[in-house]
Structures are given as C-alpha cells and as structure tokens.
Amino acid sequence: MSFHWRWDFTFEIMPRLLWATLNTLMAAGLGYAIAMVLGLGLALAQRSRFRLLTLAVRELVEFIRSTPLVLQIFFVFYVGPQFGIRLSPWVSGMAAIGLHYSAYLSEVYRGGLASVPRGQWEACIALNMTARQTYLRVILPQALPPALAGMGNYLVGILKDTPMLSVIGVAELMQTANAIGSESYRYLEPYTLVGVIFLAISLPVAGLVRLFEIRVRRKLGMR
C-alpha cells in the first residue's frame, strides 16, 4: 500500500463506480418517492380528530427522527427473517430509508399545512365540501408550494444517506468502493473517488434547490 495516486487504477475502476452511482441515484429517488407519499400520510394523520391517533403518530415521528438510520436499516433487514419474512437488501433498504425520511418530510408538510389561513378551511365548510375535496382542491395546492424548499433540502439529505445502505449489501457507491478496496488492497482511489462523485452530485443539486427556493418564494410573493 502506498499513498501514490495511480491514474491507471483510477481509470480502471471509474466505470464500475459510475455504474454504482446510478444505483445510488436510484436508491435516493426511490427512497424519496416513498418518503413523499408516506410523509403526507403521517402529516395528515396528525390533524385527525382522533386524539389517540394524533398522539401515536406524533410519538412515532419523534421516535423515527431521534434514532439512527443505520440502526433502522439493520432492524428492518434482520427482524423480518426472525418472523419468517425474507426481504431483499433493496426492499428493506428502501423501506427503512423511505420511512426515516417520511418522518422528516411529514414535519415539512405539517409546516405547510399550518401556513394555510383558517379562513380557507372555514370557506370549505361554508361551501359544504367533503374532507376529500377540501384537501385535494383547496388545502394541499396552497400548502405544498411553501413546503417545497424544505423538501429539496431532504432530497440532498437522502442522497447523502444512501451510503448507509452498504451495511446490508445494497450495491451502491460505498459498497462498490469497499469491494474494490478488498479486491485490490487499494483504498486511496476508491474512497477518494466516492467523495468526489458525491461532491459532484450534491453541490449542483444543492445549488438548484436554492434557486428553486428563490423562484417559489417570488411566485408566492414572499421575497
């Protein structure tokens, strides 16, 4: 092992790492899609009339948010087989990361829902709208735009948390770098390249999120 950077080795492993990057992007995208849907459910459940449901969901969200994601990934992956349910690394990884971020996104949605003025709710009651109509046609279209900025930050967050999926063997970037390291006994290039690839993705995405945030704010007339 030496600290000499070998370019030939770099070019040799680059295709493998770039393929793995696709897996990383797919994991982030899938996990985020699950989180968006599940998070909305968690946010709406906290506005329910049933006190017990509201309290239980509130506590669940706090629990998910204050325990480590890597532990949750292990939990989902290993607890199923104990009761006879076998989940593949991908399925359990997506479930864990989706659930984790749904708790964060539910907080963002909650903020958005709270920002809709009371009068809008009252107007819906006055117009005799059903709960479904109220949410779909009046409340959510107004609640989602202000929440978009917060949602963007978690998109970057979920991308940066995908390396944790390597602990259960999902073949994303980190796992591939580990594999290359243990085959060739060279860790300098693979681990450094993983860092560079992450920077190359997350810096532009974070920049785009910031631009998007400014545009949404302008559209809503809040400068």
Binding site: P163, G195, S202
Partner: peptide, 11 residues
C-alpha cells in the same frame, strides 16, 4: 456538507 458522513469516516 457535500459528502456523506460514512464516506468521511472511511476516508
């Protein structure tokens, strides 16, 4: 901020 904690830890 641009890379993951796990990447930094391994590095």
């Amino acid at each position: 901020r641009g890379t993951s904690l796990l990447v930094q830890l391994y590095w």
